[in-house]
């Protein structure tokens, strides 16, 4: 058996010199590992996908009943909010499942970005073992906040419509503050051995410093969910499925490359100079 080989030595000149080059290099050369990432993200998000699709089905059906005049509007809204609140309650468990997967995969993605060798399943397991306990904080806080905002939303709808703008503010805080904070925290867990409170504080400090560019990443992340407004059940299924199967894992790679740059600037240059620009070979 003979291996295919290159006609010349693979040198440092052949390695990525920028994070953009690293992004395409990883997609091109580590596609086998990315396929596993696609699968694990999809499986990790499956409970969330199922609950969300059923919830959307209920909402879509509700709106159809209202527009066709076949049901009492208040009763339909009441049922829709009830279904939505039950879904948010189920999603506490769904988010925990997703956090288990992201705890493992954040270690994988860090090693991909650093161009380090890995044993995929051993690293995945080690990531969960080392990081899940701390990451679990967000996996409880965020869905509970979503549930509470959902309850507030139904209260505002039925009792005090003037409070409705606040609902969007609260959802905005979850999406643009807590979600990126969660991602930063899980990325830090994969790299730094820190106690929980200092890590929480440091990750929030990072969030404040890169709020606007990270906000851009979050907008890119949630963009595909615009397709859900089409209101077609099949489109909803494909949107959720393809989002977690392909879109999110690739987005997460780009995000990890970016956040490593941020960590280099605000943490590593001062405290861990040996890992600055790891995975990038600047000529």
């Amino acid at each position: 058996m003979k291996n295919k080989h290159s006609s010349s030595d693979f040198t440092i000149n052949n390695l990525p010199h920028s994070r953009i080059q690293a992004f395409f290099d990883i997609l091109k050369t580590q596609w086998r590992k990315m396929l596993w990432n696609f699968l694990f993200f999809f499986l990790g998000a499956l409970p969330f996908i199922i609950v969300s699709i059923l919830n959307l089905r209920g909402i879509t059906y509700g709106f159809q009943s209202i527009s066709s005049g076949s049901a009492n509007e208040n009763e339909v809204y009441f049922n829709m909010f009830s279904v939505n609140n039950y879904s948010n309650l189920f999603n506490i468990g769904s988010f925990l499942v997703f956090t288990i997967v992201i705890s493992g995969l954040s270690r994988i993605y860090t090693k991909l970005c650093w161009q380090k060798g890995m044993l995929y399943f051993s690293d995945f397991g080690l990531g969960i073992k080392q990081n899940l306990l701390q990451n679990a904080f967000f996996s409880i806080i965020i869905p509970i906040m979503v549930f509470l905002v959902g309850m507030f939303h139904s209260f505002a709808h039925f009792n005090l419509n003037s409070l409705m703008p606040l609902v969007f503010v609260f959802y905005g805080i979850i999406i643009f503050v807590f979600l990126p904070w969660y991602f930063i925290f899980t990325s830090m867990s994969a790299i730094y051995e820190e106690k929980f409170i200092p890590k929480l504080r440091n990750s929030f400090s990072i969030l404040i410093r890169v709020f606007i560019p990270l906000g851009g990443f979050i907008i890119v992340l949630v963009l595909p969910f615009g397709l859900l407004f089409i209101g077609n059940f099949i489109v909803n299924i494909f949107t959720f499925a393809l989002f977690f199967l392909i879109y999110f894992p690739i987005w997460y790679l780009a995000y990890n490359l970016y956040i490593n740059k941020v960590f280099d600037k605000y943490i590593n240059q001062r405290f861990y100079p040996e890992i600055v620009n790891r995975g990038i070979w600047r000529i």
Partner: peptide, 23 residues
Amino acid sequence: IAKEFEIEHLLSRNPSELSLGQQ
């Protein structure tokens, strides 16, 4: 051992990217 053999920068690469000598 990668450090000893001066192949640390190759650890994440696939064999087909390497020259015969590196393999």
